[in-house]
Amino acid sequence: MRKPLIAYIVSAAVLLTAVGLGVSIGSVHVPISTLWNQEADTTATNILWKIRMPRVILAGLVGASLAIAGAAFQGLLKNPLADPYTLGVSSGASVGAVMTLFFGISIPFLGLYTLPVFSMAGAAITMFVVLGFAKLVDRGLNMETIILTGIIFGSFLGSVLSLMIALTGEELRQIIGWLLGSVSMRGWNYINMILPFTIIGSFLLWMNRRELNAMLFGEDRAKHLGVDVKRRKLVILIGGSILTGAAVSVSGTIGFVGLVVPHMTRLLWGSDHRHLLTLSFMNGATLLIICDLLARTIISPTELPVGVITAFIGAPVFAFIFYRQRKGRAA
């Protein structure tokens, strides 16, 4: 049990460092000591607590949600290329969220949570449609079949999004900015919006860590080992949809985080979900905080959407995993 402990310590240390860098680096340098220094400069304190900190925390929560969801999807589908983005689930969540904005839906009882709830519904519906269709095509749920189905539905939902954007008038700016995938200028409100769902979703997945281990050997095998496959699968899919929907509703579609992080974590610490889920959660937070830091500093003063950075890193990793899988299978 020594190795996992080291993994947790390293991941936590890297995460804390990322948070530190995230709050301190920017157009205005804010010393980290501002965090605890009562007599610090008011401007610095304001920048740190009103702008940087919520941004870093939001990036962390979004990254963590996407990464743990990706890890669970990959385990469940035995597919290293699965993540909320490649499965088209992010697009589904986007459609749900944009619909809320487009129709100006606000359900009194849900209030602030209207957006994430619709987003999650979009994610969940897409998830089941994609898997249902993939199963129709190929009962064995081949790696390529799932990803191809994800692309088909992702493209379709993308066109639905474009249509809604074309039809919208003054709301356009809000939606476009949101679509590109960004965690900037969101404030504490958004953290309140995502946090409960990140906790619930992650908990649902973590509850199924042992079952995910069993399901790596296939659903039949998991059943032989005593896993209530139908129920556990449903819980995992719902958990993943909650996480994806919540993340998309606050930050738009940020691709590949759910792909890159679990893959790296697995390479470093193995594919035992008892640790993989938690470690992916931590490392996902780290990755998105760093990516967001890059996004706002790399061509400063202009800010890139963070989705650009993750795609820039994620697409080559996607290609690499695909290559390795194919080669591995041929050997």
Binding site: Q74, K78, P80, L216, F217, G218, H224, G226, R329
Partner: peptide
């Protein structure tokens, strides 16, 4: 129940290849 069943019946499957790998002990 699924777990009770697995305590009474163990199944050795045909050989398969897997996308992810556990250690032997795991």
């Amino acid at each position: 129940s699924p777990k009770e069943f697995a305590r009474n019946v163990a199944v050795l499957p045909q050989m398969h290849t897997h996308a992810f790998s556990h250690t032997v002990r795991a």
